[in-house]
């Protein structure tokens, strides 16, 4: 992976990084390989004020390569789980989670497939998704965009979507925001009057029909043509190679 030519995985990583561009001095919690790489890219380049952990309990002053163990001089603070909960209830956090299922209003499921009472497949459980989505900004990463993942209705609402948040009234849902969904095919947001998922950009080489065919609900397609997701410059690709020398993200993204 020494080539400076951007791959689909690189485009996804930059799209992830862009989710955190204007977040300022808050904590980023990125679950999974591509979210971790994208968050590190943001911190290493245009969003240096982001706080980031080693995935355990150390706050790190600089973005380290995926899989690297921090040295003492990489540490700037302490973030044990108790402090993570305090931070998320405080709201100074943007999490990017995975989604086994996600629907058109951004309701997300990581808990189980089938009825919760007797699941066909027990997945992660709700974990922190209910608290995250109701307290601070949340984005999602879907490495394999298909109609089994982007569904009309999720089996169990773990992460709260816009229709559910709206039902709580103006106070209950006031900290709820789903910033973006990044998949291997494109970038999606909820910048629509009724907060339905919208195709914001297609990754280069992806056809609109391919996205429509692989989405289990009707996406909002912007009038007047769809943007193309930005391709990282050779310089950015160079940073990505340094942050992921083993090429883990290249293996995660389904092309």
């Amino acid at each position: 992976m020494s080539s400076r030519e951007a791959t689909r995985a690189d485009i996804c990583a930059l799209a992830v990084a862009e989710c955190f561009r204007d977040d300022g001095e808050i904590m980023v919690s990125a679950m999974g390989t591509t979210p971790s790489l994208g968050a590190r890219l943001a911190k290493a380049t245009f969003a240096p004020d982001l706080l980031m952990t080693d995935g355990y309990n150390l706050l790190l002053r600089r973005a380290l390569p995926l899989g690297a163990r921090p040295n003492d001089d990489d540490i700037e603070g302490w973030m044990p789980f108790g402090s993570v909960f305090d931070t998320l209830w405080w709201g100074r956090r943007h999490v990017m989670m995975g989604a086994s299922q996600i629907d058109q209003f951004g309701n997300q499921n990581i808990a189980c497939i089938g009825p919760w009472e007797r699941p066909k497949a027990q997945l992660l459980g709700v974990r922190g998704a209910p608290g995250n989505t109701i307290n601070h900004v949340t984005s999602y990463w879907v490495p394999n965009h298909n109609a089994r993942a982007l569904v009309p209705e999720v089996d169990m609402v773990s992460g709260v979507g816009y229709d559910r948040a709206a039902s709580l009234g103006s106070r209950g849902g006031r900290f709820h925001e789903i910033r973006r969904v990044i998949s291997n095919l494109g970038v999606f947001d909820f910048n629509t009057p009724d907060r339905r998922m919208r195709l914001a950009s297609l990754h280069p080489g992806i056809e609109l029909q391919q996205v429509i065919d692989n989405t289990g609900f009707e996406l909002v397609i912007p009038d007047g043509g769809v943007d193309t997701t930005p391709v990282p410059t050779p310089e950015i690709v160079g940073v990505l190679r340094e942050l992921d020398p083993q090429g883990y993200a290249q293996k995660e993204v389904v092309v």
Partner: peptide, 11 residues
């Protein structure tokens, strides 16, 4: 606030 709007209340 955690749990509001989610199916945690349903299950």
């Amino acid at each position: 606030r955690a749990g509001l709007g989610s199916d945690v209340l349903k299950i």
